[in-house]
Design a protein around this nucleic acid. Structure first.
Length: 459
RNA sequence: UCCCCGGUAGCUCAGUCGGUAGAGCGGGUGGCUGUUAACCACUAGGUCGGCGGUUCGAGCCCGUCCCGGGGAGCCA
């Protein structure tokens, strides 16, 4: 029976016969014995293994290099050395999987850029091990949050029909022979394609999940999302994960409250449940991380109408590259000013000009703004984008026509407003941006095991 | 896509004015110590991103391509 390193390090007493298995982080040899640092992924801390000449495997200890997989039988004893409470005195050391001397991970610090080139091995580092543990725990915590509040997890489709979502560039899905594309009247004949029509990977589950919202009341999606934009930044990937809750009988105020509750709950969760892993990021990635997280979890978010935000920016006396003006999008520098200089905490900007936002957002009575909201956080910017949805059939239809969309593509979406429509609201939260926020990691490619970005599809 | 910066040993980097390639870590060998990124000595290891050009001579200057990073836009 295997014991985990995590369990053994927390043991309350010595234990006679234990077996542990994992990967060697380093070996330190003395004349008459060796120390092995063993990590099995169950926690950040390594377990120290003592191998003495009496152990029958001592003679071959030189074959166990950094990176090798081993299984150790021995006894858990109090460590007479400094730096650890427990260690395992080995009776047998089995070399399960050797690692030659050219194992790419060394004991010293590597750059994130280099580790991206060996993404298949980087989970074996302290930092990425901690990251992927936190990622898994946080994903679970999101489900717990919604479950406790009566939300149902809805599996919206990954493959969708023609673009009736208007959010970003699409990845086409096809089984057509690209070397010999069938044509009809000069255009591609998608009638011969797998679905008999154009198909794409989803850019958002929102429109789909709204249908379940108007039946189950409170729902959310949590799954992969795909956008083929040629974005080369530290905040974008072609494949990322998004959480999209949707609430019936709810307005923008409820929406903002839910977004704020979710973020503050998740920050508290990692502070409490991932303390050891989080500490690594506080030590080696961002020294201000504990203060940043406490600031987010401990304070209510600022709520600021877009119109007032523009006013603050204009009166700030700050020289911006892009002059703030009503009707124009907030630039990165504007968001930074609000969250990092002016308020120094997360800010929810709401009631945006209609022209800046998507067709499905609810038109306000002022005739020029919509009930949209973005949650902006220091250093990352927009982490949540949401709105109250336009539930009035005529208004929605008018917007679709005004924007020149093909009304027929939206027949089922409009139907939800025709039959038993109700006010409802929701938002999208970028899961990777959330991970950047809680760990302080500055590049989104380092919070997911295998990042997909333009011209990068390794591993 | 645009604007900057970079590419030298397995890894992290230095390399002066254009003059025959350096360190630390990692590897190997030996020594030493209940060690903690262990330590000490010795040792092996290079198409200086690719191609072309200037020059008596290019890691260094010029052109071009490839790759990486930062910022911007698009957005989550």
């Amino acid at each position: 029976m295997l014991a985990s390193v995590h369990t053994l390090l927390q043991s309350g007493s010595a234990r006679d016969a234990v077996t542990v298995a994992g990967w060697v982080r380093t070996r330190r040899d003395s004349k008459d014995f060796s120390f092995i640092e063993l990590n099995d992924g169950t926690c950040l801390t390594n377990l120290q293994i003592l191998v003495e000449p009496g152990c029958p495997d001592y003679a071959n200890i030189g074959n166990i290099h950094t990176g090798a997989a081993i299984r150790v039988d021995g006894e858990l004893v109090a460590s007479p050395g400094k730096g650890q409470r427990w260690e395992v005195r080995a009776r047998r050391v089995h070399l399960v999987g050797p690692a030659p001397e050219d194992f790419p991970l060394q004991k010293k610090r590597h750059t994130d850029e280099y580790l991206r080139t060996i993404a298949h091995l980087r989970p074996r580092t302290n930092k990425y091990g901690a990251m992927f543990r936190i990622r898994a725990r946080l994903a679970h915590a999101i489900h717990e949050f919604f479950h406790a509040r009566g939300f149902y997890w809805i599996h919206t489709p990954i493959i969708t029909g023609a673009d009736c979502e208007g959010a970003g560039e699409l990845f086409r899905v096809t089984t057509l022979d690209l070397a010999n594309v069938p044509k009809l009247n000069g255009a591609v004949d998608f009638g011969q394609d797998f679905f008999g029509k154009e198909a794409n990977l989803t850019v958002s589950g929102q429109l789909s999940v709204e249908t379940c919202c108007l039946a189950l009341g409170k729902v959310y999606t949590f799954g992969p999302t795909f956008r083929s934009e040629n974005s080369n930044t530290s905040r974008h990937m072609a494949e990322f994960w998004m959480i999209e809750p949707e609430m019936a009988f709810a307005d923008l105020r409820d929406d903002m409250a839910l977004g704020e509750d979710l973020i503050r709950y998740l920050v508290r969760f990692v502070q409490r449940e991932c303390a050891e892993d989080l500490d690594l990021f506080a030590k080696f990635v961002d020294r201000n991380l504990p203060a940043t997280l406490e600031n987010i979890a401990g304070h209510e978010f600022i709520r600021l109408p877009y119109t007032e935000a523009v006013d603050i920016l204009q009166k700030s006396g700050r020289k911006f590259d892009y002059a703030p003006a009503w009707g124009r999008d907030l630039q990165s520098e504007h968001e930074r000013f609000l969250t990092e200089d002016h308020f120094r905490q997360p800010v929810i900007v709401y009631d945006y000009p209609q022209g800046l936002k998507a067709f499905y957002m609810r038109q306000n009575d002022d005739g020029r703004t919509v009930a949209a909201m973005d949650i902006l956080v220091p250093s990352i910017g927009e982490i949540v984008g949401g709105s109250q949805r336009e539930e009035r059939y005529d208004n929605l239809q008018r917007r679709i026509r005004e924007l020149g969309f093909n009304e027929a593509d939206y027949w089922w979406y409009l139907d939800t407003r025709k039959y038993g429509t109700v006010p409802h609201a929701g938002f999208g939260l970028g899961f990777e941006r959330l991970l950047m926020l809680v760990t302080g990691v500055g590049n989104i490619r380092d919070v997911i095991p295998f990042p997909r970005t333009p011209k990068h599809l390794e591993f």
